[in-house]
Design a protein around this nucleic acid. Structure first.
Length: 426
RNA sequence: GGAGAGAUGGCUGAGUGGUCGAAAGCGCUCCCCUGCUAAGGGAGUAUACGUUAAUAGCGUAUCGAGGGUUCGAAUCCCUCUCUCUCCGCCA
């Protein structure tokens, strides 16, 4: 959510910046609503003021033992007028709110113009793409050869976009999670957290998934419950600081959480239908930071670096891009995507997305810190990034570490977690 | 699942219809005193919105959330959420 003050004071700048995010702001509609809101608010507050002073007078008169009936007659019509005015103002405020809630965060000046993935700018590439003296398979064929990855079985249980895995590949999957968590807690200074996988509407509003992106969520509604499956650990973890004031000396807060993520993938029919790239359910190790506003851009570099370290330690070639305005997420002011090289697809594919949300989520969540310089509570900045998406990391390892006979070598850093296994074969 | 208690400012906690944005204490800030430290004295100390050149004044809202009663609600009524205690059940 943007600061409604800058909408009023610097609307042109806001509209201009939103254009780079391909968001067309209806200036006329906003101005009209604003005008009406202003006059209605003033007149409503006048009525409230009258009511308050009259009521006080009645109280005083009563205390003195005077006859209050004439005073009561005077205020007889005030109640109805007030009720009308308050109702009208409330309805108008709701309209303005729903407008405001739907406006994305403003992009940083360093964000390139553009409409789609193609316009993202590459910052760097790391590592050597593996060279094979045979035709590399994709993870689906590899999984089939080794056994243990079964999409049809999952379809029987749940439907499309699910998978069951059995055997050593699942051990590798678990090893990845352990490795990532250990790296982030022991080397990068994050605090490990355990969180609910079902969250309420207000949490999702706080991080920006609601009200605008409801169709992308799994909604659990029953007689006694109204909850959503988390699409990412960002939601529960970032909301740790919702409706609170954090002491300056506690910042930055750095949390890491391993959770499943659930996404309905509505609107992505026909996209990545094969394999494990795009699933309704996947595991992710998520990094979240809560920082002082001044430090958030540095924190984004740091956090992205932490995700990159995982790729580097796993020896996976990747490239780092800055998302262009059109590809940038709703709540983000700047996002780095890390794209891992997949030999089976002969392409780089997203494996991590690291974003600085500045005060956008903090304002929705009312997450603040006490600034010692002013003594006042001010909004914090929040950041998050995948460190990494585990399912995609698993298939990246399968495809990058495959051998001619279809077996898969285990990267060195994972060996301590594989209880003796050095390779996986069918 | 059954029975009961509760939710007030950064924190603890008073307040059961009127001048209450809210006593008191703690914490914090500033000042005074005191030859260190400690102790003591005084003043200040919520947030949002509107108006405004203004972080000055003034106005409005906010005592878990939403509704209601009333001229007037932290206080009374209803619904919901959450917390705690006891009993039962249970991974």
């Amino acid at each position: 959510m943007l600061d409604s003050k800058i909408l009023r004071s610097d609307l042109d700048m806001v509209v201009e910046k939103l254009k780079t995010k391909n968001f067309n702001f209806d200036v006329d509609a906003f101005n009209q609503l604003e005008e009406r809101r202003k006059s209605l608010q003033v007149s409503t507050e006048n009525l409230q003021s009258q009511r308050n002073s009259r009521s006080r007078a009645i109280g005083e008169a009563k205390a003195k033992g005077d006859d209050i009936q004439p005073l009561l007659d005077e205020v007889a019509s005030l109640g109805d007028q007030l009720k009308n005015a308050e109702g009208e103002l409330g309805a108008l405020q709701d309209q303005l709110d729903s407008l405001l809630f739907g406006i994305p965060n403003l992009p940083d000046a360093s964000v390139p113009q553009g409409n789609s993935e193609e316009d993202n700018t590459q910052v760097l590439t790391w590592g050597e793409k593996p060279v094979f003296d045979f035709e590399p398979k994709d993870h689906i064929d590899l999984g089939q050869a080794i056994g243990g990855i079964d999409f049809e079985r999952a379809a029987k249980l749940s439907g499309a976009r699910f998978v069951t895995m059995t055997g050593p590949l699942v051990t590798l999957h678990r090893a990845l999670i352990q490795f990532m968590l250990n790296q982030h807690t022991l080397q990068h200074g994050y605090t490990e957290t355990y969180v609910p996988y079902l969250v309420n509407e207000s949490s999702l509003f706080g991080t920006g998934q609601l009200p605008k992106f409801k169709e992308e969520l799994f909604h659990i509604e029953s007689e006694n419950h109204d909850l959503y499956l988390i699409p990412t650990a960002e939601v529960p973890v970032t909301n740790f600081v919702a409706a609170s004031i954090v002491e300056a000396k506690q910042l930055p807060l750095k949390f890491v959480a391993h959770t499943p993520c659930f996404r309905s993938e509505a609107g992505s029919y026909g996209k990545d239908t094969r394999g494990m790239i795009r699933q309704h359910q996947f595991e992710k190790v998520e990094l979240v930071q809560v920082v002082k506003p001044r430090e958030s851009m540095n924190a984004l570099e740091e956090l992205t670096g932490h995700a990159e370290t995982i790729l580097q330690l796993l020896g996976l070639a990747y490239r780092k891009v800055i998302l262009c305005g059109g590809d940038l997420g709703f709540a983000s002011t700047k996002t780095y995507d890390l794209e891992v090289w997949l030999p089976g697809q002969n392409a780089y594919r997203e494996i991590s997305s690291c974003s600085n949300m500045t005060d956008f989520q903090a304002r929705r969540m009312k997450a603040r810190w006490r600034n010692p310089e002013t003594g006042k509570p001010e909004l914090v900045h929040t950041l998050n990034g995948s460190g990494l998406a585990v399912g995609r990391t698993l298939l990246a390892i399968m495809e990058n570490y495959q051998r001619a006979d279809g077996s898969i070598e285990i990267p060195d850093v994972l060996l301590p977690y594989m209880h003796g296994m050095t390779e996986i074969r069918g």
